[in-house]
């Protein structure tokens, strides 16, 4: 008897409660995470900002790219290039992006926006 850990019945109940609590929180979080998407702004290959999407957030972000000012709009669960000082304006034409795997890029300014998150009904990449 002396060599064993003298665990009592109640101990197992305590362990069970702790593990159940951990699992509960974890499952809840995992469920929340599968719905959570993020908007990433990548400037010249490095992450400039990451914004939680899906809420009621309204934000306009203006930043300086290689050829001029770039304005990005966040609207709830979607984001887009509003305007850009660049020669081709391809980025503005791309329009709204909202699903995981989607992206838009302003090549001359080297600014990219993309949607990331746990991939559920999104895609891993988009052929353009």
């Amino acid at each position: 008897m002396k060599n064993k850990i003298p665990l009592k019945l109640g101990d197992f109940a305590l362990f069970a409660v702790i593990i159940a609590l951990a699992c509960g929180v974890w499952i809840r979080l995992a469920l929340m995470q599968t719905e959570q998407t993020y908007g990433e702004i990548v400037v010249d290959g490095t992450l400039y900002r990451e914004i939680k999407l899906g809420g009621t957030e309204q934000e306009t972000i203006t930043l300086e790219g290689r050829t001029g000012e770039v304005t990005i709009e966040i609207d709830g669960d979607r984001m887009r290039f509003v305007s850009s000082q660049c020669p081709d304006h391809t980025c503005e034409r791309t329009g709204w992006i909202s699903r995981v795997g989607q992206s838009a890029v302003c090549l001359p300014n080297r600014v990219m926006i993309k949607i990331t998150g746990i991939n559920q009904d999104g895609v891993d990449a988009v052929a353009q």
Binding site: I5, P6, L7, K8, G10, D11, L14, F15, I18
Partner: peptide, 21 residues
């Protein structure tokens, strides 16, 4: 609270774990 039942219901291990949690 748990120490009241130490030795009968719980051991130090369980109480410590609960306390840490």
């Amino acid at each position: 609270v748990l120490l009241h039942k130490q030795g009968t219901w719980f051991s130090f291990y369980g109480i410590s774990a609960a306390s840490a949690a």
